[in-house]
Structures are given as C-alpha cells and as structure tokens.
C-alpha cells in the first residue's frame, strides 16, 4: 500500500533535475599500506534507495564509516545538502541528519527498547544537566513529548511487545528492528543500513523489506543500503553500486548491474580477470559514476 502511494519511480524519472542529498566524491581511505576504498564517487538523490554491493572486504562498511565520521578519508569529500561532512565528528554528523545501523548490532544492551529509541532522539531533546537533576518543567515536558514520538516508532515497527525489555535479551531479528528504530528516531535526512537482513530467515527478511519500503513511502528518507541478499537489493533499490577491493566496478539500475559482466567477474572471479584488467574496470566504474 505504501509503495503505491509513494513515488518509487520518481527517483529515476527526475534524477537529473534534483539536487542530490549526499555527494561522495573520489574518496580514498587507507589503513597504513592497505587501501580500503579508492576513488569511490556517487550521489544519493532525495527519496532514493541506493544500494552498495560487493564481495566480502570490498569496503562497503568502510564507506559507511567514512560517511558517519567514524573514519576520516585521506582524500576526497563527502557533502550532505551541499555542505562538507568529512572531518566532522560522528556526533556532529548525526546532528546534520545522518543515521545508521550496524552490521553487527550495536545496541545499548542494558537499556530497554524504549531507552534505546530515546537515545536515538538524543539530539532532538533539549535540556541541560541541571534541568535533568530537578526533573521538573522543561525536562519532564520534553521527555513526555519525545516519549510519544518514540512510541510512534514502536508502533511503526511493531515493537510493542518488547518495549520495556532490555534489548540484550531480545531475539536477533528483533534487535535488528530495534536498531532500525533507533536510527529512525533520529529523524534522519539520510539513513545508512548496514546489512539489515544479515542472518535473518525468510519471514524476518520479508518483514524487514516491508519496513524499509514503508520508511521510503511514509517518511521519504534517502537511504543507502549495504546488503548481500541480492533478491532484496534487486527488488528494493533504485540504483546499485558494485564495489570490488575498494574500487567501484559499476553503478546503475538493478537490471543494468545484473547484466554487467564485470559484476559477475567481481563476484565469481571469472575469466574477465584475464581480459579486463583492474585499471580498465576502475576507469569504467568512475565513468559510470560521474553524474
């Protein structure tokens, strides 16, 4: 229902006319002698679901870490709504409207579901320590207002049954959902989903897919998704970027990417290794990426 009310075809149709939400330009990230990502550039448009795929160790999560400020790239730039993002601290980037989930769940295990979601709203709650000590007036009012916002997310993600439980005790699939909720509670401009359905069974995957398309339809958040579940990526994503050894192989619609022989080579290590040398692939990828 939600996918029909939202304009899923819009990102492709009006892509050329709209300003991108996020622009990543020629980012390079090295750890000592190891180059984790090299020359990665892409744009994410408003309401777009942009997927990043690639074999293990391709640098997908590193891109997320660069965008959210956990790592600082040696080269290149990241801009959100036209303003530089790279170099800022994670908390400052979060305030600019970038939220993320983690591949290995990074929830606050001793806190309840509600408290985890309230932490997502941390930057929207405004009162100081002295007000917190007294818990009258402003502090109490703000807590009530934001508690209501959090309960809406609880409803949205069907978390009501677990809301008062410490998240450490919850099943894996539910924890993944709580983490998504925590990111949503930040009211992000851009949402980074790091393997949202990793390790999930079919039912849980379908649930998560529905939540992701609901988020697009109802909240209109731009998303970047890293995922190994190709069926999910091909069904949900507007555009897909393929990475291999930190280098972009190609970017395009799911259909284009699936047909690209270089993608097959990256995943299966096929015969193209001999024919298309890596430099060729790099050049082609960069050319594809440039807007």
């Amino acid at each position: 229902m939600t996918t029909t009310t939202a304009p899923p075809s819009a990102p492709g149709a009006h892509a050329a006319t709209r300003e991108p939400v996020l622009r990543v330009e020629d980012v390079q990230l090295r750890f000592g002698q190891v180059t984790a990502i090299d020359g990665v550039s892409f744009d994410v448009l408003p309401d777009e679901l942009f997927a990043v795929i690639g074999p293990n160790g391709a640098g997908k999560t590193s891109i997320f870490n660069v965008i959210s400020g956990v790592y600082r790239p040696q080269q290149g730039s990241v801009t959100l709504d036209g303003k530089r993002l790279d170099g800022a601290r994670p908390a400052a980037i979060a305030r600019r409207g970038v939220a993320r989930t983690f591949q290995n769940i990074e929830l606050f295990a001793n806190l309840t579901v509600i408290d985890n979601l309230m932490l997502g709203r941390h930057q929207h709650i405004h009162y100081g320590t002295l007000s917190a000590l007294a818990w009258i007036g402003r502090a109490r009012r703000q807590e009530l207002v934001h508690r209501r916002a959090v309960e809406e997310i609880v409803d949205f993600l069907d978390l009501a049954a677990w809301r008062a439980m410490p998240v450490g005790l919850l099943p894996y699939g539910v924890q993944k959902r709580v983490e998504l909720g925590r990111a949503l509670a930040m009211e992000p401009r851009l949402l980074l989903l790091d393997e949202p359905v990793a390790g999930m069974n079919l039912e849980e995957t379908e649930d998560m897919a529905r939540y992701i398309s609901d988020i697009r339809g109802e909240l209109g958040v731009s998303m970047i998704m890293v995922e190994h579940d190709m069926a999910l990526v091909m069904d949900l994503a507007d555009r897909v970027m393929v990475l291999d050894f930190g280098v972009p192989v190609t970017t395009g619609t799911p259909a284009q990417v699936q047909r690209d022989p270089r993608v097959v080579a990256a995943y299966l290590g096929g015969e193209l290794d001999a024919a298309g040398d890596p430099t060729d692939a790099t050049a082609a990828g960069a050319e594809q990426v440039r807007p």
Binding site: S68, G69, V70, R89, P90, A91, I93, A94, R95, A99, R100, F102, E106, L107, F108, A109, N110, L111, D115, M118, L119, G120, H122, Q123, I125, Y127, T129, A132, W135, A139, Q142, E143, R182, M186
Partner: peptide, 23 residues
C-alpha cells in the same frame, strides 16, 4: 533523563553513542 541515557550509551557502546549524536 537524557543525560543518564547518554552516560549509559557511552558505557555500553561508545562508537554507537557517537553515531547517535552523543558527544
């Protein structure tokens, strides 16, 4: 309060706390 939750976040997962906007 907001402060107590932020303290617990720093204790449990400091990287995630930063990404949540907790200084």
């Amino acid at each position: 309060s907001r402060v107590g939750r932020a303290l617990a976040a720093v204790r449990d997962r400091d990287v995630a706390a930063g990404v949540m906007g907790v200084e």
